[in-house]
Simulated assay, not measured.
Amino acid sequence: MLVALVGIGKIALDQHVPAIAGSPDWELAATVSRHGSVEGVEAWDDFTAMLEARPDIRVVSLCLPPVPRFAYAAEAIRAGRHVMLEKPPGATLSECHALQDMAREMRVSLFATWHSREADKVDAARGWLSDKTLRRLTVTWKEDVRRWHPGQAWIWEPGGLGVFDPGINALSIVTKILPKPIHLSGAVLKFPENRQTPIAADLAFAHPDGAEVTADFDWRQEGDQIWTIEAETEAGTLVLSDGGARMTVDGAEAGTEEDAPLSGEYPRLYAAMARLVRDGASDVDLAPMRHVADAFTLGRREIVAPFEE
Rank of each mutant, 00 (worst) to 15 (best):
M1C: 01
M1W: 02
D14N: 11
P18K: 13
I20C: 03
G22L: 03
L28H: 10
A29R: 11
S33K: 05
S33M: 01
S37C: 01
A43K: 14
W44G: 04
D45H: 10
M50L: 14
P55T: 05
D56I: 02
L64Q: 08
V67T: 15
Y72N: 02
A73D: 12
A74T: 03
E75S: 09
H82L: 03
E86R: 03
E86D: 15
A91Q: 15
L93D: 09
S94N: 12
E95K: 13
Q100L: 10
A103V: 08
M106F: 09
R107I: 00
A119R: 15
A124N: 01
R126G: 13
T133F: 11
L134E: 07
L134V: 14
R135W: 10
T138W: 03
T138P: 03
V139S: 13
E143F: 05
V145G: 03
R147T: 14
W148N: 12
Q152P: 00
I155G: 01
W156I: 01
W156T: 04
V163I: 15
I168H: 11
A170L: 04
L171D: 08
I173H: 06
T175E: 12
K176S: 08
L178Q: 07
P179R: 09
H183G: 07
A187D: 12
L189N: 06
A201M: 09
L203N: 10
H207A: 13
P208E: 06
G210H: 09
A215M: 14
W219G: 07
W219L: 12
T228W: 00
T228L: 04
I229G: 03
A231N: 03
T233S: 06
E234G: 11
T237H: 02
S241E: 06
M247G: 00
E253V: 04
G255L: 00
E265H: 11
E265Y: 04
P267K: 02
Y270D: 02
A271D: 15
L276C: 11
D279V: 01
D279H: 11
V284R: 11
A287D: 14
P288S: 10
H291W: 10
V292H: 06
V292D: 08
I303D: 14
V304A: 06
E309P: 01
E309T: 00
